[in-house]
């Protein structure tokens, strides 16, 4: 499927590296997995791959907004920040760090010229094979749930991939 032989071999080598030759860092997987992702989900076909993508939490407009007063609503909501998945998030003008940002290793999206219209196709989290599988599965499930809550997906839904060393789990 267009994935070069050397890259297939490299992935195979990573999978077969075992406990002793296993890469020290999960980042050793990033390049090869990014390579495979971009080979299949090409820019030409309308996809984009986001490394360390951010899933921001949905927030309601400021509490100072009084329901029923449309002028007040519009002036306050215009200050809200909109994510690339069209989620109303905390405005940048609010002081302090934004709470609860999730950051999966990669997100594969259907993109477009709009800054707020990305649709999530895959969420990929990569861990070394010796890491806690249960914790990792909880983490990716949390990411998928947050992604689903954005509604930014096509009818075929969102798939989470947990790469745990030589094994990949589909969520």
């Amino acid at each position: 499927g267009g994935v070069p032989v050397w890259l297939r071999k490299r992935l195979r080598a990573l999978c077969n590296s075992g406990a002793t030759k296993r890469p020290h860092f999960e980042s050793s997987w990033y390049g090869p997995i990014n390579g495979v992702s971009y080979t299949v989900f090409t820019v030409k076909d309308g996809f984009i791959i986001k490394p360390q993508a951010k899933f921001r939490d949905k927030v309601s407009p400021p509490s100072s907004v009084i329901p029923g007063r449309s002028n007040s609503v519009s002036s306050n909501t215009s200050n809200m920040s909109t994510s690339s998945y069209n989620v109303e998030a905390r405005p940048r003008t609010e002081p302090g760090p934004e709470a609860d940002i999730l950051e999966p290793d990669f997100v594969i999206c259907i993109a477009g010229s709009s800054l707020t219209g990305d649709k999530i196709v895959y969420i990929i989290e990569i861990k070394r094979g010796d890491e806690d599988a249960f914790k990792a599965s909880e983490q990716i499930t949390h990411y998928v749930k947050r992604a689903v809550s954005t509604g930014a997906m096509i009818s075929t839904g969102i798939v989470g991939l947990l790469v745990l060393g030589s094994e990949t789990f589909r969520i």
Binding site: G1, R8, I110, V121, T156, V159
Partner: peptide, 17 residues
């Protein structure tokens, strides 16, 4: 890789051009 290829095919069918 096969998973990716299958899903891409599926997406290209429903994706607006």
């Amino acid at each position: 890789i096969q998973c990716f290829l299958d899903r891409k095919e599926e997406i290209m069918k429903v994706m607006p051009v």
